[in-house]
Amino acid sequence: MFEIKTKELLGPKVWRMDIYAPLVAGKAMPGQFLIVRVDKDGERIPLTVCDYDRDRGLITIVFQTVGAETERMSRLAEGDCFADVVGPLGRPSDLVDLPVEELKAKKILFIAGGVGTAPCYNQLKWLHDNGVAVDCIQGARTKELLILEDEMKAVCENLYFATDDGSYGIHGNVCVALQKLWDDGVRYDHCVVIGPMIMMKFACQLTKKLGIPTVVSMNTIMVDGTGMCGACRLLVGGEVKFACVDGPEFDGWEVDFDQAMQRSRLYKTQEGELMLKLTEGDTHSGNCGVCK
């Protein structure tokens, strides 16, 4: 079974878990994702891979409790098991296919937003292990939400922080931080942005203006995650693509973020109802209509 070996609270509602899943750990590469189910009635939840330990068969996930299923995940303890962990899914990052010399010649910037830091970490660690020096801007609303600080510092050449409220690092969002670096004369020729869709949208608008080719990782709605159901479709360069098999990484300049954000709201009402049921339990009757 897929046992939780360690569980740690990284920030408000942000959890890290190491799970025993040798089939996934054996092959996972930076950029890929996996799907978990809490129990036999659970929904299939896609999550990006934060780290893997092939020898011990462990994979690391980081998630924020945003709905009923992630809330239920957060209630699992060390020693508990997930009913299912399946993966690795999706294509690995294009970066891992490039010759290391070519990577070293590039000036690469990562932009990590919120829990999007976790999948960035996986790629940054791989690049660091291969001797490629990479910078990163890590952004969050406030200092408390900046996760994995020590881990990130260990794998980044230069790590810049940006908080919306100015509680840590640069005062402003990741775009403010990138513009500031650019104005100071720092130049990049490749960028990877992973975080909330709204952040990726604006980061891509800026990198396009600055002329830095940019890759994003799309966390769309999914069901099977293996190229069967088509729930994860999005428009990239005007064409229908499927995040689970064509992605999850795409050319950020070509992604239709407005449509992707709209599609991600598809089940918000049902998710909200489930969350109320879970958190309010039997006291939630559903009759007042507020949750509808």
Binding site: D41, G42, E43, R44, A68, E69, V223, D224, M228, C229, G230, A231, Y267, Q270, E271, L274
Partner: peptide
């Protein structure tokens, strides 16, 4: 929706039942 998605939600994930956790 694709029929695949709609049917997978209902059949594999049991979403036709009000008790299902899949919308």
């Amino acid at each position: 929706f694709s029929a695949n998605e709609y049917l997978t939600r209902s059949n594999l994930m049991g979403a036709f039942s009000p008790d299902s956790r899949t919308p």
